[in-house]
Design a protein around this nucleic acid. Structure first.
Lengths: 254, 254
DNA sequence: AATGGCGTTCGATAATATCGAACGAACAGG
DNA sequence: CCTGTTCGTTCGATATTATCGAACGCCATT
């Protein structure tokens, strides 16, 4: 007895999480079908969420979409992140130097989450979205973080994650990945060369806290042709320096 | 009988909304005290929210803070906003031209909500935060929007809103405000000259949709001394042009 | 050791979320 | 102009489920 969690809250969250960029509006019927709940149950939950601004009903077709209150709360979380605030000026400087887009990610539930992005000036840009999640094993930022986790965690994640070969260059063999992580630790940076998307290259480096624990990573990413060999040396150096600068702000002594 | 809304969902939302930039972490006790609920009730709700990633418990002191999932959902809302996507390139261009920070707001529940911000290069910046709310009557963006609402709505808002004089220049008299709104309609733009904060000046213009209904507004804002008379003409012209360009993307024929 | 404060767990109870059925509006097709 | 369907919404009975107070165990302080 006593289900651990509050059913109606769980269901309300289920409703919110049905929405996505590809599915920006849903009807009561669609929601009740997908969650296998009665229309009236869903209706009650929806009306509560709507009343609080977490859902909005479009007047035209009565469908529902996510409400502005989520935007407000989400930005509150973003603004409150110490990491973002400490890293932001350093990231801006890095973009100014490299003229390429820089990302900041944190680890959450065995994935990376993009928490900051500053775009470079070039018209051809990497598509990314704050709040987006990506796997550890095939992104620059992911690997830079991954390489500095303790071995038990690495093994667990490698075992649990289902590895997809997004491109012919994606590493999906656990042993190959572990070897790659060793190389990253030696070098102090990670490279993603078309491992998640053809044409996309990036250089990433880890960020540590005062205990020397990895907590985040940054990367500079762009189209492969702008990452020529002679530029790479600069990119690597600057990204490493920037990551170190952020780490220092966290009290890291390296 | 049949309370209109689902109690536990409402309470879960109450919990989330207790958090703010000033209050980034709360204990179970603090939450149960503030909401006047038993610790066990609050605990159940919290654990549900935590399990779903909407709250996180800090290992150090067991207090709770907002979770990354809110960041994700909030950014999903932001990315899904048609207005933002249509307006973004125009806003970027405007910032490049004027070298001042540009904001985009929408109307929600009789207030304006900041949904986009692109900062100018100057070191001295206006503080603002995406998702933040501000009153209609004393901000440039607010007045630009306000001026084009139907009169009944204007009257209702003027009656319901409690007007605070943030500075000696804030208009708080309903009649004075209505007169100002008329002037704005004549000119097609609004100016906020230290009405919400001393030293802060801004120029704002409304954005309309295909029906000619006002749906948003943009502004260019900065420290008063950078808004000299000779620059103002340019600022006004460019902000109006940019707002019109966004309106056109919405099918507005003006 | 003893105390107080806290997060957490437990179980009984009553409140409350849930479901199915039914209503009314909007729409499509004959 | 009806008829049938679909969907959002409302309602009331029912039993599930959220709620509360009490108690536990942990930690820090005295």
């Amino acid at each position: 007895m006593s289900e651990k969690f509050i059913q109606s809250v769980d269901r309300a969250i289920d409703i919110l999480e049905l929405f996505s960029l590809a599915q920006q509006e849903l009807s009561v019927k669609e929601i009740s079908d997908r969650l296998q709940l009665s229309k009236s149950t869903v209706h009650g939950l929806i009306k509560t969420l709507e009343h609080r601004g977490y859902l909005e009903q479009k007047p035209t077709d009565q469908k529902y979409k996510l409400g502005l209150r989520l935007f407000e709360l989400g930005n509150l979380v973003g603004s409150g992140m110490e990491l973002r605030n400490l890293a932001y000026p350093i990231i801006q400087e890095l973009v100014a130097k490299l003229q390429e887009t820089v990302h900041l990610v944190v680890l959450d539930k065995d994935e990376v989450v993009y928490v900051e992005k500053v775009e470079g000036p070039a018209a051809l840009r990497m598509y990314s979205m704050l709040g987006k999640r990506a796997p550890m094993y095939c992104t620059g930022v992911g690997k830079a973080l991954f390489a500095y986790l303790d071995e038990a965690t690495v093994d667990r994640i490698l075992q649990e994650a289902e590895m997809t070969a997004f491109t012919p260059f994606t590493l999906t063999d656990p042993d190959a990945i572990k070897q790659e992580l060793g190389k990253i630790r030696e070098q102090g940076y990670a490279i993603d060369d078309e491992e998640i998307e053809i044409g996309l290259k990036c250089v990433a480096a880890p960020i540590f806290n005062h205990e020397g624990k990895v907590i985040a990573s940054i990367s500079c990413a762009g189209p492969k042709h702008r990452f020529s060999d002679d530029k790479m040396a600069t990119f690597i150096h600057e990204v490493k320096q920037a990551a170190l600068a952020v780490s220092r702000r966290f009290g890291y002594r390296g």
